[in-house]
Design a protein around this nucleic acid. Structure first.
Lengths: 144, 144
DNA sequence: TCTTGAAGCTATAGCTACTAGAGACCTTAG
DNA sequence: CTAAGGTCTCTAGTAGCTATAGCTTCAAGA
């Protein structure tokens, strides 16, 4: 049996986050010790690792909730989980495109900065005037 | 003179967002009409466009606040602006590395999903068990 | 056995960067 | 003059945590 601290350590999740996941119903309420402290078994560790891993993959908690409900009912089709993963892949691809454009823009700004005064600073100038943009980075969604 | 709606349209920023920026001190309090409505001039438009542009490049509002205060004093060195931009570039680069690993992982998951039941669905399995990961995507910070 | 310090508990508030809603008021086109 | 739509303030909500306060419990050393 693991205390919440050990569980967090094992799964790589901070203690308040575990309590938060319990609060929003992602993790079931665990058994308690005689002194009211949470005690976790292997299944909680697996579930938490699942959640953490999905978070790392960029899944929002709602999608994770769906995935967990799928795995809680193993007779269901995997198509639903596949749909979720594909949706995430689309999001991730879009973010990469977006960030790559931002990177180019930032690099351009920085290399052109002559280290003089603010009056002729490229960083400020580029930010002030959209016409300086090498690419139109207004088109692919929010910057995050 | 522009009303808040026209200003938002001109800068590509939603009206509540403008009021929010004013509230947190990013935009100065504008003059008001006889009927208490905000009226903006060119300088507000410039400033708002700057903010929006910096947001699009992923700068957090705190960094934008710093950049704005720098641009208010054009005789200073622009080294500080350079530092802010470089920090942002580092963040963006890290996110790209991270998201690229996630993309590979999701693609692998999807191709391996046999479209059967959840019991043999790799999507669930891969997310449950870190050892299935093609790359270690644990190393480069939070998923956002 | 006692004690001390870490770890746990609940509850509440705060964070970023907005967004949405309620209900009243102002402005402008027809 | 009226009606529609823009604007006003204020509050609360969003995601996904993180931090704080003030308390209790647990494990290890003296």
């Amino acid at each position: 049996m693991l205390t919440i601290g050990k569980l967090g350590e094992a799964a790589g999740v901070k203690v308040p986050t575990i309590r938060y996941y319990e609060q929003i119903g992602l993790l079931p309420e665990p058994d308690r010790s005689a002194g009211n402290q949470r005690l976790y078994g292997q299944s909680a560790l697996d579930r938490l690792a699942f959640i953490r891993h999905a978070r790392e993959l960029g899944f929002p908690l709602d999608a994770i909730r769906d995935l967990l409900s799928l795995s809680d009912e193993p007779d269901q089709s995997c198509a639903a989980a596949d749909v979720i993963a594909k949706k995430q892949l689309t999001t991730v691809k879009a973010r990469i495109v977006r960030l790559t454009a931002l990177k180019a823009e930032l690099e351009r700004m920085i290399t052109q900065c002559a280290q003089g005064t603010v009056a002729d600073c490229r960083v400020i100038e580029v930010l002030s005037d959209h016409s300086h943009c090498a690419q139109d980075h207004r088109t692919s969604g929010a910057a995050e």
